[in-house]
Amino acid sequence: IDIAVGDQVLSGSPVSQLYAWNKNGVALTGFPVSGLWAINSQPLLLDLDGDNNTEIVIDDNTQTGGVGKYLAFNHDGTPVSGWPKQVTGTTFFQTPSFGDIDRNGILDMIGSGYTGSGNSALTSLYAWNTQQTINWSKLQIPMWQYNTRHNGVYGDIIITDIKNKINEIPSSYSLEQNYPNPFNSMTNIKFQIINSGNVRITVFDILGKEVATLVNEQLQPGTYETKFDASSLSSGVYFYKLTTGDFSAIRKMVLVR
């Protein structure tokens, strides 16, 4: 297991660096990489060029003639051939994503460029074909922008995996009362569905603002249970809603510190 991070030196010149260490805290050969501008996005780790090694992708938060860049480096700190990828504007906090967008087995990249400010700000979306066959085993080691929902908010509501508790197909839809209730940080929610389909469970505060999505996936008929960790929320009344097909149900729960 290795670690890669970038620093952000706001000096008006390219003096930031990209660091990489092994599990013992020893710098990897070729690191740090110098001469970079401020690195604001999370470094992404994946096999970018099909060589079965892990490469590092970062943003380089600068504009040269109105052009921003995404950079890529090999495991020895040397630049990856065919990079950087350029956008109009800056890549400020614009972490890229990788996948097979057109389902042709070739690795694709999504990025964006940010221009303007205030009411005149504009974000443009870019997509590139890397010309490399996807190595699914090294597609991308998950990187989180502050939390698992990638919404830039420090702290998170930690949701555990849902579990199918009973193999028998239930006879009706149901959203049970959470337990314990009232609760302090952690509570359990059981529900059952009778048809296959997308199931969504969301949590709202007293003002109707959505504060968490507990479940949003395709499920088979059965009885399920999920845990809800609300340790980052304030005390108060919250509502959780189950939606699937033509069925929906809402229940109230109380968080007490």
Rank of each mutant, 00 (worst) to 15 (best):
I3A: 10
Q8G: 03
V15G: 05
N22P: 03
K23S: 15
A27T: 01
A27Q: 11
L28R: 08
L28W: 07
T29N: 11
P32W: 14
P32E: 07
S34L: 10
A38S: 07
I39C: 05
I39A: 04
N40F: 11
S41R: 01
D51Y: 14
N52C: 05
I56W: 04
V57A: 04
N61R: 14
A72W: 01
F73I: 00
G77M: 00
G77T: 00
Q86A: 09
Q86W: 07
I101T: 01
D102A: 05
R103C: 09
G105A: 12
G105R: 13
I106F: 12
I110N: 11
S112T: 03
Y114D: 08
L122W: 03
L122D: 03
L125W: 10
L125E: 06
A127T: 13
T133E: 03
K138E: 10
K138D: 09
N147R: 09
T148Y: 07
I162S: 02
K165Y: 00
Q177M: 15
P182E: 07
N184T: 05
I194R: 07
D205C: 05
K209I: 09
A212E: 15
V215Y: 03
N216I: 01
E217D: 11
K227S: 14
Y238N: 06
Y238M: 05
F239R: 00
K241I: 02
G245I: 00
A249K: 12
A249T: 02
